[in-house]
Design a binder for these strands. Structure first.
Length: 270
DNA sequence: CGCACCCCCTGCCGGC
DNA sequence: TGCCGGCAGGGGGTGC
């Protein structure tokens, strides 16, 4: 589910409810997430106040008042909800963080590919690996050329490589390549200056629009207040194999690239 | 270095 | 109707 726009939507809806408020209870019902929830997790959070909620790529960072940070990743199927403390338990609710004895942040994750950990932000190895955030970084064509010259891989694989850019997943990689008119399997190192400029523009357009609309992602995305995203109605190619291209009506094609479904218009993308 | 292929896990959908 | 295989928004590891 969550790529950058969804995670950003969760961050924005959660932040005003948690900043300045204090953790009054913690419960972990299922520790077996992508990496097991650490033994001291509850104690690290209890009594702490939230200073800020940040995001790096697909990671959420809840800054605490003791220089520690709660790091969260939602994997494929994870979500963070705010609930009243009397709300009923749902299947796959794994972690509960009660704030000011009123609301509860709930991590729900059917597939358990998500993670949560508390620690010093400098010690999170996964953050050291990831590249710049495409929403807060702009690369001009020269930057792109320099970065891309040595990358002998399909441009879609590069876009999804979190060490190169942090936050782009399968849906948005497909969509921004459609916007840019570039085939997913084109070698990154062989893209022209003009194509890289178009890609930079498409990347921002697609991501900003998705954030503006509150995140996309198939039918089941909900922000932290339970509101659905609406971007799915704008998917031009993702999950539309055989359906007409919105621009030229040619049937959308599906191929597999690095094990991931890849969609493009054979006519509009070259 | 890049990649094809595994794995982790549950749910859902389409085909038979 | 019911079962089974394939596939799903992510990421990490291996061996070639």
């Amino acid at each position: 589910m969550p790529e950058l726009p969804e995670v950003e939507t969760v961050r924005r809806t959660l932040a005003p409810h948690v900043i300045g408020r204090r953790v009054t209870a913690v419960e972990v019902r299922e520790r077996r997430l992508r990496q097991p929830v650490q033994p001291g997790f509850e104690a690290c959070l209890l009594g702490r106040a939230f200073r800020d909620v940040g995001r790096r790529g697909k990671y959420l960072l809840f800054e605490l008042d003791d220089e520690q940070t709660l790091l969260a990743h939602l994997g494929m199927s994870g979500s963070l909800h705010l609930r009243g403390r009397e709300a009923a338990l749902a299947p796959h609710d794994h972690v509960f963080i009660e704030i000011d004895a009123s609301e509860v942040i709930v991590l729900n994750d059917p597939r358990r590919f998500g993670m949560m950990r508390v620690g010093a932000v400098t010690e999170f190895a996964e953050l050291r690996q990831i590249g710049p955030d495409p929403l807060s970084t702009r690369r001009n064509a020269d930057d792109w050329r320099r970065e891309v010259r040595r990358r002998r891989m399909p441009i879609k694989s590069l876009l999804m490589d979190q060490r190169f850019l942090a936050g782009i997943g399968n849906i948005y990689a497909n969509e921004m390549l459609f916007e840019a008119g570039i085939r997913p399997r084109r070698m990154a190192s062989r893209l022209s200056r003009l194509e890289l400029e178009r890609l930079e523009g498409a990347m921002h357009a697609v991501l900003y629009k998705a954030v503006e609309l509150g995140g996309s992602s198939i039918s089941d995305f909900r922000d932290a207040r339970g509101q659905p995203g609406y971007f799915q109605i704008h998917h031009a190619v993702y999950d539309r194999e055989g359906a007409p291209c919105p621009r030229c009506a040619a049937p959308i094609r599906r191929v597999v690239l690095s094990g991931r479904s890849t969609f493009y218009c054979p006519n509009c993308q070259r």
